[in-house]
């Protein structure tokens, strides 16, 4: 892979690994002089994407999540992939407050949160094959807010 630096991790799709994923991305970007607020935004977005893979990709059943964290030209690039059931209507899934699992008290805000906290969000999905969420954010040395 043609990145200045990257780390690729695969882990079982269980909810205890949501915090593991946050720790991995957090450790990975610690080589930069990222501000605390930006770091928290990135960890929160990763948490959303990994939760999506576990709950929606695999319906909380057996599966594997793959996470790529990469740095290039001061841009953090994260790809979170599951090989689960896929999203039939991406546009609907991205609508704020829409959730296919209200019984689990899901708020339907996952994609909205990712979109607001990161610079870009791309969702690639195919039914029966899985979903890839691509997030990017420019790493700025100081928190502006």
């Amino acid at each position: 892979m043609n990145y200045e630096n990257y780390v690729l991790s695969n882990f079982k799709a269980i909810s205890t690994n949501e915090s593991l994923a946050r720790m991995i991305v957090s450790s990975f970007v610690s080589s930069t002089d990222i501000g605390l607020n930006d770091l928290l935004d990135i960890k929160t977005a990763v948490s959303e994407a990994v939760t999506n893979a576990i709950i929606h990709g695999y319906d909380e059943k057996n599966g594997e999540v793959s996470m790529l964290c990469a740095l290039n030209d001061g841009i953090l690039h994260i790809e979170i992939t599951d090989y689960g059931k896929g999203i039939s209507n991406i546009e609907k899934a991205r609508t704020p407050l829409f959730t296919s699992k209200p019984e689990l008290e899901r708020s339907g805000m996952g994609f909205t949160v990712m979109e607001m906290l990161m610079d870009s969000l791309e969702v690639i999905s195919e039914e029966g094959k899985g979903t890839k969420i691509i997030l990017t954010k420019k790493i700025s040395s100081n928190d502006e807010d």
């Binding site: 008290e105 708020s107 339907g108 949160v113």
Partner: peptide, 13 residues
């Protein structure tokens, strides 16, 4: 220290 949208769902519930 951190809350994702699961926290929103939990509070609304």
């Amino acid at each position: 220290s951190l809350m994702d949208s699961s926290g929103i769902g939990m509070v609304i519930g």
